[in-house]
C-alpha cells in the first residue's frame, strides 16, 4: 500500500521526476550546438579585437571592431554612395527573392519531370550538367552582352546559380522514392495525378527543401558578382565600391550584413523544414 502510494507520488511530484532517457542518436540528430557556436563567435570576436588592439595587422587591412561598429552606424544614418542602407538592402533582397522564386518555380517542376520522364531527363540533362559547374563569374560577361546592365542580367545570373541545386535535388527526391510505396498506392487505385500529388511530391519534399536551402545560399554567394554589373544599389555593390576606396571598414559592414541575412534565411528554411516535413528521418 505504502509502496503504491510512493510510486504514485513519484510521477506527479515534479521535483522527483524520473530520469528521462532516449536512444543514443547517430550523427548529430538534434544535438544542441548553439552554445558551442556562440562561444566560437565570441572567441573570434575576441581574437579580432586583440589582433587590432595590439596592431598585429595594419589597420588598413583589418579595421578594429569599434571602427566597424561606428561605420555601421554611420551607414545606417547617412547611407553609402548616394543611397540609404535600406535602399542597398532592399535592392539586394529584391534580386535574391525574384531569382529564388523564378529558380524554384522552374527548377522544382523541371527536376520532378526529369526524375519521372525519359524525355525530360534526356533533353535537359546535358545542358544542366554542362552549365552548372561553371562559376557565375565566368558567364557574367555574356549576361552583360546579351541582357545589358539593368536588373534583368543580375536576376538571370542569380537565377542560373540557384536553379541547378534546386533542379538536381528535386530529381534526387523522385529517385529516393521507394517502389513499394508506389505499388501500394497503385493497388489502392491511385491515378497518375493522384500518385504524383499524394506520393511523389511529398516523398520528394525533404530533398526539395534541402535544394532550396542550398540554392539560396548559392544566391547570396553570387550576389556580389551579380552586383558587379554596373549597379548603383545593393549590398554587393556597396562592398565593391568601398573596396575601390580601400574603405575596409565599410567592406566589413557589408560582409556582416550579408552574413546576417544568409544566416537568417538558412535558419528560416530550417524552421520551414521542421514544419513541412516533421517526419524526416523518422520512418
Amino acid at each position: 500500500m505504502t509502496d503504491l502510494a510512493r510510486s504514485g507520488s513519484r510521477t506527479s511530484d515534479p521535483a522527483d521526476r524520473p530520469k528521462i532517457v532516449r536512444l543514443h542518436p547517430f550523427g548529430l540528430d538534434g544535438a544542441r550546438t548553439g552554445p558551442i557556436s556562440l562561444a566560437t563567435a565570441l572567441l573570434l570576436l575576441a581574437a579580432w579585437f586583440l589582433a587590432t588592439h595590439f596592431r598585429l595587422v595594419p589597420p588598413l587591412f583589418l579595421p578594429t571592431p569599434q571602427e566597424v561598429a561606428t561605420q555601421f552606424l554611420a551607414v545606417v544614418e547617412d547611407g553609402y554612395a548616394g543611397a540609404t542602407l535600406w535602399e542597398h538592402l532592399s535592392a539586394s533582397l529584391f534580386r535574391i527573392f525574384s531569382a529564388a522564386v523564378i529558380a524554384a518555380s522552374l527548377g522544382i517542376p523541371l527536376g520532378l519531370a526529369m526524375g519521372l520522364n525519359r524525355w525530360a531527363k534526356g533533353v535537359f540533362d546535358t545542358p544542366i550538367e554542362f552549365y552548372w559547374p561553371l562559376p557565375p563569374l565566368a558567364y557574367l560577361p555574356l549576361m552583360i552582352i546579351w541582357l545589358g546592365i539593368g536588373e534583368v542580367s543580375k536576376i538571370v545570373l542569380l537565377t542560373l546559380a540557384m536553379f541547378a541545386p534546386v533542379c538536381l535535388s528535386a530529381q534526387a527526391g523522385v529517385r529516393s522514392l521507394p517502389i513499394e510505396r508506389v505499388n501500394a498506392a497503385l493497388s489502392l487505385g491511385a491515378g497518375r495525378w493522384q500518385l504524383f500529388r499524394t506520393i511523389v511530391l511529398p516523398s520528394a519534399l525533404p530533398e526539395i527543401l534541402t535544394g532550396l536551402r542550398i540554392g539560396i545560399g548559392v544566391g547570396w554567394s553570387t550576389l556580389v558578382a551579380a552586383e558587379l554589373i554596373a549597379a548603383t544599389r545593393g549590398i554587393g555593390f556597396m562592398i565593391m565600391s568601398a573596396s575601390h576606396f580601400l574603405a575596409t571598414d565599410v567592406v566589413f559592414v557589408g560582409i556582416g550584413i550579408i552574413a546576417a541575412f544568409a544566416f537568417a534565411f538558412s535558419y528560416g528554411m530550417r524552421l520551414l523544414e521542421a514544419w513541412l516535413v516533421p517526419w524526416k528521418g523518422k520512418s
Partner: peptide, 13 residues
C-alpha cells in the same frame, strides 16, 4: 486487389 507488404509502406506524413 488489396496488397499488404512485408515492409510497411504507410505514408509517414
Amino acid at each position: 486487389r488489396g496488397v499488404v507488404f512485408q515492409k510497411d509502406t504507410l505514408l509517414p506524413w
